[in-house]
Computed example of a mutant assay.
Amino acid sequence: MPSRQISSHAPFSTSPVFEALIVPYRSTTRRGVIWMAVAIVVLSLGVGMRFLLLGAWPVMLFSLLELPLLGVLLAINLRQTRASELILLDPRQITVTRTDPAGRQTGFSLPTAWLQINLEENRGASRVVLTTHGQGREIGGFLHEPEKASLCKALQRAVHDIRHPVFDNPQLRGL
């Protein structure tokens, strides 16, 4: 099923019952990555200079060749900061909007009437899968295992609350 653009201004939209913004885990900030890159460059050049002075010039060559590789890998790491997944559940549908590292948004919507949320285990890795009318879509792909289980339980609870609303009628409290 092809992905489609999701409009943020849907007509007759109801307020969300459940909302989750999922972003990949970031172990450091952009400033931290820059400091780490500077430290690795200084350390690499220091080791290369030490071996160059000892007469082992190929070590300096390899030290200089590893620096562009470091730059490429850190650029890929920093590029991942824009990736996210927004999950909105309202009484009529669940809408998932994904933003890739380039900033492009795609998404899909599934009706909540027959929606099933399952945590599927496969060879030690789990997936949160939304299924309705034969359509299965994975969400939360970059979450860790405990976070996937937590997301699955929270979504299941929210769908249950939609299907089984509790009405509080003050006139019936005494009965």
Results as ranks from 00 to 15, higher is better:
51 F>S: 03
129 V>E: 04
4 R>D: 07
105 Q>F: 08
143 L>E: 02
1 M>K: 09
122 N>G: 10
128 V>S: 01
109 S>Y: 00
165 P>E: 05
80 Q>N: 11
120 E>F: 15
24 P>K: 04
31 R>P: 02
92 R>E: 03
165 P>R: 08
105 Q>M: 08
12 F>H: 11
51 F>L: 02
97 T>H: 03
118 N>P: 05
36 M>A: 14
1 M>C: 05
27 S>W: 12
3 S>I: 02
55 G>V: 06
63 S>G: 12
89 L>H: 02
58 P>A: 00
88 L>M: 01
97 T>L: 04
12 F>S: 11
53 L>Y: 08
152 C>W: 01
28 T>W: 11
136 G>L: 01
5 Q>H: 11
36 M>R: 14
157 R>D: 13
94 I>P: 00
160 H>I: 06
153 K>A: 15
42 V>T: 15
145 E>S: 13
147 E>C: 07
103 G>R: 05
145 E>G: 13
7 S>G: 09
25 Y>C: 09
95 T>G: 00
80 Q>M: 08
150 S>T: 10
15 S>Y: 00
106 T>M: 05
140 G>K: 00
75 A>M: 05
31 R>L: 10
111 P>M: 08
169 N>A: 10
34 I>T: 15
44 S>G: 14
132 T>D: 05
152 C>K: 03
48 G>Q: 01
112 T>Y: 02
57 W>H: 14
49 M>Y: 14
111 P>Y: 11
102 A>R: 09
38 V>C: 13
173 R>M: 07
25 Y>L: 07
71 G>H: 07
138 E>L: 03
88 L>S: 00
151 L>S: 08
153 K>V: 13
16 P>A: 06
3 S>K: 09
169 N>L: 07
7 S>E: 03
47 V>L: 04
82 R>N: 11
36 M>Y: 14
172 L>Q: 12
169 N>F: 11
58 P>G: 01
162 I>E: 02
157 R>I: 10
157 R>T: 15
92 R>P: 01
159 V>C: 02
